[in-house]
């Protein structure tokens, strides 16, 4: 069910259950709010392992809706590719000041 359709380098993202904040998963299954610190994988077996870990029991009370997203490896760390994920990682592109 968690079969990846994406193909390239991928990382796991979710929202924190209590706060709703955007979080990304590291290889050890811990969560960070900094996308650059996420762990990504390309090998399908490793990708599968990441998403299975994200969906495993203890995460049910830590995060909501873990999913795989396409990322790129940049000098500063992992970076999202799609606009939606860029906005999720960085916040709204508009700020409120009147």
């Amino acid at each position: 069910m968690a079969k990846s359709r994406l193909g390239g380098l991928q990382a796991v993202t979710a929202n924190d259950l209590r706060s709703g904040a955007v979080v990304f998963m590291r290889r050890d299954g811990s969560w960070t709010d900094d996308v650059r610190l996420a762990d990504a994988a390309q090998d399908p077996v490793e990708v599968e392992r990441l998403i299975e870990l994200a969906r495993s029991g203890r995460n049910a009370t830590l995060v909501v809706d873990p999913v795989l997203i396409e990322v790129a490896a940049e000098a500063t760390g992992v970076a999202p590719i799609r606009l939606r994920e860029k906005i999720r990682a960085a916040g709204p592109t508009v700020t409120f000041d009147s």
Partner: peptide, 9 residues
């Protein structure tokens, strides 16, 4: 009325 949006609830 509680949604989960992109960044937060």
């Amino acid at each position: 009325g509680v949604y989960l949006q992109l960044h937060a609830y």
